[in-house]
């Protein structure tokens, strides 16, 4: 088969994506774990991991740009490279949200939480599940799986609304809890955005498979 070097380069882009996926997944899990366990060290580690993600992103972007310039890809090849650039951007943003959660945890500081965490860890779990599925769909160019990812997004939205309502109730009853409650709302928001980014990757997968850019409802 001709273009072996080009195919190898495309595979390398894919490998970088998979590395970043693993890193970001760990960042999301650890950021919520650091919140649950009041673990400031773990939060700091999450923040450090973000630099690593950024480095991978920069490296992949440069390689992809050079591949476009040197190989002049067309059709599926071109969509593969374009999709790689989109997906790495989504993953990097997911990493930023996880970093955000870790930073909020540092701001809350080493005090007890105003309530036991139930829905936030569920949101985290569902977001991770979405991420894994959309990345699996992307890797296998599986349009059906990509479309199914988005249904879970609705569940994450419901959970976020529940978290916000509950925290508003707490704030009304006890205004001194407002600061931490607001922080927890931010965290719920970040998790919801992480799930949205998975939806974007699912849409990128559909673009990769069909050439059609379309928003999934």
């Amino acid at each position: 088969m001709p273009r072996e070097e080009f195919d190898k380069a495309l595979d390398e882009l894919q490998e970088t994506i998979e590395k970043v996926q693993k890193l970001v997944e760990k960042m999301i899990i650890d950021s919520v774990k650091s919140l649950e366990n009041r673990d400031m060290d773990l939060s700091n580690k999450v923040i450090e991991m973000d630099d690593e993600v950024d480095k991978y992103r920069d490296d992949l972007e440069q390689k992809a740009i050079f591949l476009i310039a040197s190989e002049q890809p067309l059709a599926t090849d071109l969509r593969k490279i374009i999709t790689t650039l989109r997906v790495i951007m989504e993953l990097e943003r997911m990493g930023d949200y996880a970093e955000g959660i870790a930073k909020i945890n540092l701001r809350i500081g080493e005090t007890e939480l105003i309530k036991p965490l139930i829905d936030i860890p569920s949101m985290s779990k569902k977001s991770i599940e979405m991420m894994r599925n959309c990345m699996k769909a992307y890797k296998n160019t599986d349009v059906k799986l990509a479309e199914s990812v988005c249904r879970v997004d609705d569940e994450v939205d419901v959970l976020k609304d529940r978290v916000i309502n509950e925290l508003l109730q707490i704030m009304m009853k006890d205004p001194s809890s407002s600061r931490q409650a607001t922080y927890l709302i931010f965290i719920a928001h970040n998790l919801e955005r992480i799930a949205d980014r998975s939806t974007n990757i699912a849409e990128d997968t559909i673009f990769l498979a069909t050439g059609k850019s379309r928003s999934i409802d």
């Binding site: 088969m1 273009r3 080009f6 969509r79 050439g211």
Partner: peptide, 17 residues
């Protein structure tokens, strides 16, 4: 050049002949 209908076309334009 973006989404050809036939596989032969895709193979040719992407240099995978």
């Amino acid at each position: 050049f973006t989404t050809p209908f036939k596989k032969e076309t895709e193979d040719y334009i992407t240099g995978r002949f």
